[in-house]
Write a protein that binds this DNA or RNA. Structure first.
Lengths: 207, 207
DNA sequence: CTCCAGATATTGACATTGACAACATATGGC
DNA sequence: GCCATATGTTGTCAATGTCAATATCTGGAG
């Protein structure tokens, strides 16, 4: 990996690990300046390479965004899995902890989260993205203790979809500022986390 | 409104109702070709005017998208209000009917719905958009019968946020294809509407 | 060790777009 | 009737995605 010297003076023709560097810079641009500022050329500039260099690693802009979303899904899966392990003691096997982790991820990496869940500009046939999404889906699916008596498929699917929809909708509305009014009307010492706690406490999936 | 003839042969220098025409064409482009195809110049072409004409009515691209989102919110409010009136008899004052109307709107105008709920490219300080969003928020807020004994603010906010998050998250995940696997695993004669019905039936907000 | 095929990076070009400036034309109030 | 203003056009510029042609490096076959 290390080519002795010649790394500092005149940068070598080949970068060495440009794909990783581009993804790192792309995420920095995404969170600092927004999705509209995340262009192939901006990532290339940030990495110190020519404007066409990214094409070798990602093909087109969709490729770069898809690989970046894959990075996000891997990180997302790790956070969800860690939350399930930590909040293990609870009744619905870490369901609350995972809901909080879901929203925490969205608030920590807001633009990345939106990119991940906006299929529009993603190519889900890319293996890296497909695999990362599968991992995240599996982490999510492991929520909720299996009921004593097995439910009919529609009921089981409904509970899973309802749990996911609740936290996903909350995260999306929060990121878009749609809950700002509601949060502003609470006590001054209550914030979005408290609202989420109350939402999770108030909602039951046992129709 | 009608300037006798001279409308058919050589189009007059002034369009007459260009703002409306541009919005109509913009929505057609949005739903037919996707958000990335909705450009100022494409809308101008579709309306048969020069590439810089839209600037007179919308300023910049954000202006066009914001006005289009406003049109969407007005239509959205009308659908929600109609659903509440129709499904009135139910227990939680049309809550189920409004949830279904919410998702029906999203499925009928998917790209418009996503545009409306992606603040990124919208200017919510535009009066038209601000007003339309306020109307929609009020239509949504009118869901759920006020409880017999008034709840503490956090509880009340939590129920409202939970209802909204549930249907919004379902709509978003559905539009993004994230529920496709779940729906595919149901009976062949069950679809997204059935899953939504089951989700709404299974979920209670009475923690 | 040599050499070359492929991977990696650069340069240059082109069409498209958003935005702006300068100008043309129609409209409505006085 | 006349002009301030709204509305529409033409021309231009920088930025971007994408492609083609070219340059440079790397690793393995011989």
């Amino acid at each position: 990996m290390d080519h002795s010297e010649a790394t500092a003076v005149a940068r070598p023709y080949h970068h060495g690990d440009l794909k990783t560097a581009l993804l790192t810079q792309a995420e920095a641009i995404l969170e600092r300046d927004g999705i509209q500022a995340l262009t192939l050329r901006a990532a290339a500039r940030a990495a110190g390479v020519s404007h066409a260099a990214p094409a070798n690693h990602f093909g087109d802009l969709t490729g770069l965004l898809s690989e970046l979303a894959a990075v996000g899904f891997i990180r997302f899966s790790a956070m969800l899995t860690a939350a399930r392990a930590t909040g293990g003691g609870g009744q619905p096997s870490g369901s609350r902890a995972m809901g909080q982790a879901y929203v925490t991820f969205a608030r920590t990496y807001p633009n990345l989260f939106i990119l991940m869940f906006r299929g529009e500009r993603l190519d889900t046939t890319r293996p890296a993205l497909r695999d990362a999404m599968d991992a995240a889906a599996q982490a999510l699916r492991s929520v909720g203790a299996p009921p004593a008596v097995p439910l009919p498929p529609l009921q089981a699917a409904a509970r899973a979809a309802a749990r996911w929809s609740l936290v996903h909708g909350f995260a999306m509305l929060l990121l878009d500022g749609r809950l700002a009014g509601m949060i502003g009307s609470l006590s001054p010492n209550e914030d979005a986390d408290d609202l989420l706690d109350a939402v999770l406490a108030v909602t039951r999936f046992d129709g």
